[in-house]
């Protein structure tokens, strides 16, 4: 239990041990731990940054989507407008065409009626002449009465 020269030996040993621990254990390990702490901090910062960027990208995507929707709506509206225009145009064309056809048909009809009237007129003239021939029982000079007959046929 006495204080002996062991005291100095132990002091020396203690001092050396501190030096060794610092050199071999504390130095490298605390350096490593600091490096790891830095890496973790960097990683967290990067994650934060990534999150922020993702938020920005999401925002941008929403904006783009909205823009696209607006554009699509515009295009649809334009298309609908154009379609109704086309329909109107087609209707107009059809109406014009039908009028044209009706007009042509009317003209044809009139022409035919006139033709028929003409034919009838000549026939009536002939019938009238024949009737008159039969009634009068004598020959009537058709040439002498042509004016009269023509006048008669025109009245039909």
């Amino acid at each position: 239990m006495n204080i002996t020269v062991t005291l100095f030996a132990q002091m020396l040993a203690f001092g050396l041990l501190i030096w060794f621990v610092n050199k071999v254990m504390w130095g490298p390990l605390s350096g490593l731990m600091e490096a790891r702490q830095k890496r973790i901090a960097d990683g967290l910062a990067a994650a934060e940054k990534g999150k922020h960027e993702q938020e920005l990208a999401e925002k941008r995507a929403t904006e783009l989507l909205k823009e696209a929707k607006d554009q699509a709506q515009e295009i649809v509206a334009q298309g609908q407008k154009r379609a109704s225009e086309i329909v109107e145009e087609a209707k107009d064309t059809a109406r014009a065409e039908s009028e044209r056809i009706i007009a042509a048909a009317n003209a044809e009809l009139e022409r035919e009626v006139n033709q028929a009237k003409e034919a009838l007129r000549t026939q009536v003239a002939a019938i009238a002449v024949a009737g008159a021939e039969k009634i009068l029982k004598r020959e009537i000079d058709a040439k002498a009465h042509e004016d009269l007959l023509n006048d008669l046929a025109a009245r039909i």
Binding site: L17, V24, M25, A35, R36
Partner: peptide, 16 residues
């Protein structure tokens, strides 16, 4: 013992 064990750990340590 402390130095040897600690030194070995420090040598084989990773910062991962």
């Amino acid at each position: 013992l402390m130095v040897v064990v600690g030194g070995r750990v420090a040598r084989n340590a990773t910062d991962g």
